Amino acid sequence: MQNLNNSLVSIIMPIYNGEAYIHDSISSVKKQSYDNWELIIIDDHSNDASLQIAQKYAEQDERVKVFQTEMLCSGAAKARNLGVQYCTGRYIAFLDCDDYWSANKIQLQIALMKEHNANFCYGSYAIFSGHVNNLIGEFRPQSLISYSKLLRGCDIGCLTVMYDSYALGKHFFPMVDKEDYALWLKILKSEHARVVLCESIIAFYRVSSESLSSNKWRELVRQYNVYRRVEGIGVLKSLFYLSCYACYGLKKHYINYRGK
């Protein structure tokens, strides 16, 4: 399918020991109906075959570019930031190596951003476990989101985000826990941010056994630290937002994830 315009889309993919999943992720990028993209893969010194698999794709397609972090186990935030540093596209998007996209993801989002004069787009996504066909639910975010609403609950999946770096500039992930959430807060706080939702399912998020059994108390502590240390919000207000976030999280995981 012919491109809607000539704007290059940069896709940032951090990898660490993802050899079991990376084929599905990279293939979903290569199958995009919008083909003017570059895939920036940042390997965080994997000790499996992830790097070799990524390099094989790079040899076959010049749009795929592979780099490594300087230090072992630098983490997803540093890997993504390195990708942002190296990327050259107008639009920047993110995809982890164990998730994948629908074939029209980029095309739909660019069309929506142009139609609504938006510079930040997020979307609905499906949830799966194990095999890519083992769908267990879906999440459809609120259509109207703002900095204030985001403080009370996060509807933005990193694998669905695309933003216009010409309008917003390049943004780097803060070096904190929940770095993606902290970045969305920073962007939405900007007076230049114009946000649009893609209501269609455009991405597929893998739920692992680790994420299913994650420590909820630790998650709340990390959330509180974002309020206090990143946003500089007072104690009482942070506790209020934390209670809203916890309630919204329960609703999101047990009601909004339909079919789960």
Results as ranks from 00 to 15, higher is better:
Asp155Ser: 01
Ile92Glu: 00
Leu135Asp: 05
Thr88Pro: 03
Asp98Gly: 06
Asp96Ile: 08
Ser74Ile: 12
Tyr163Lys: 07
Asn134Ala: 15
Gly75Trp: 02
Ile110His: 00
Gln142Thr: 11
Arg90Gln: 04
Ala79Ile: 00
Ala79Trp: 00
Cys121His: 00
Glu138Thr: 10
Lys78Trp: 11
Gly153Val: 11
Ile145Gln: 15
Asn119Lys: 03
Asn119Tyr: 03
Leu95Thr: 04
Phe120Pro: 05
Arg80Trp: 01
Gly83Pro: 01
Ser102His: 12
Ser165Tyr: 12
Thr88Arg: 05
Leu159Pro: 07
Met162Pro: 00
Arg140Leu: 14
Cys73Leu: 12
Glu138Pro: 05
Leu112Ser: 10
Ala79Pro: 04
Gly137Tyr: 07
Lys149His: 14
Leu108Gln: 03
Gly137Trp: 10
Asp155Tyr: 01
Tyr122Leu: 02
Met162Ala: 04
Leu150Thr: 09
Cys154Trp: 11
Ser165Cys: 14
Ile136Cys: 13
His131Tyr: 10
Phe120Leu: 08
Pro141Arg: 06
Tyr100Glu: 10
Gly137His: 15
Val161Pro: 04
Leu95Tyr: 05
Gln85Phe: 04
Leu159Ile: 15
Leu135Ile: 08
Leu82Arg: 09
Gly123Asp: 07
Gln85Ile: 04
Asn133Trp: 09
Tyr91Phe: 12
Gly75Lys: 02
Gly130Leu: 12
Gly157Gln: 00
Leu82Ile: 11
Lys149Arg: 14
Leu135Met: 07
Leu82Cys: 08
Thr160Ser: 00
Trp101His: 13
Met113Pro: 09
Asp164Thr: 02
Ile127Ser: 07
Asp98Ala: 03
Gln107Glu: 14
Gly75Pro: 04
His131Leu: 08
Trp101Thr: 11
Asp98Glu: 10
Ser143Val: 04
Ala79Leu: 02
Ala167Gln: 10
Gly130Ala: 13
Gly157Leu: 03
Val84Lys: 03
Thr160Trp: 00
Cys97Asp: 10
Gly89Asn: 05
Arg80Pro: 01
Asp98Lys: 03
Phe120Glu: 06
Tyr86Asp: 13
Met71Asn: 14
Cys97Ala: 11
Tyr86Trp: 09
Arg152Gln: 15
Ile145Arg: 14
Cys154Arg: 08
Val161Phe: 02
Cys87Glu: 12
Cys154Thr: 10
Ile136Gly: 12
Ala126Tyr: 09
Tyr125Trp: 15
Arg140Asp: 12
Gln85Val: 02
Ala111Thr: 05
Arg80Ser: 01
Leu144Lys: 11
Gly153Gln: 09
Gly137Pro: 09
Arg152Asn: 15
Cys154Lys: 08
Ile106Gln: 06
Cys158Met: 07
Ser148Arg: 14
Asp99Pro: 07
Glu138Gln: 12
Ile110Pro: 00
Met71Gln: 15
Asp96Lys: 06
Tyr125Arg: 13
Glu70Met: 13
Arg90Gly: 01
Arg140Tyr: 12
Phe128Asn: 08
Lys149Tyr: 15
Cys87Gly: 03
Gln85Met: 03
Ser143Met: 09
Ala103Gly: 03
Leu108Arg: 04
Cys97Met: 13
Asn134Trp: 11
Pro141Gln: 07
Ser165Gly: 15
Ile145Leu: 14
Ser102Ala: 14
Val84Ser: 07
Tyr166Cys: 02
Ala126Pro: 08
Ser102Gly: 13
Asn133Lys: 13
Leu135Tyr: 08
Phe120Gln: 11
Lys78Val: 15
Leu82Tyr: 05
Leu108Asp: 03
Thr88Ile: 08
Phe128Leu: 06
Leu95Met: 09
Glu115Ser: 14
Tyr163Ala: 02
Pro141Trp: 04
Ile156Phe: 06
Gln107Cys: 06
Phe94Pro: 01
Ile127Ala: 05
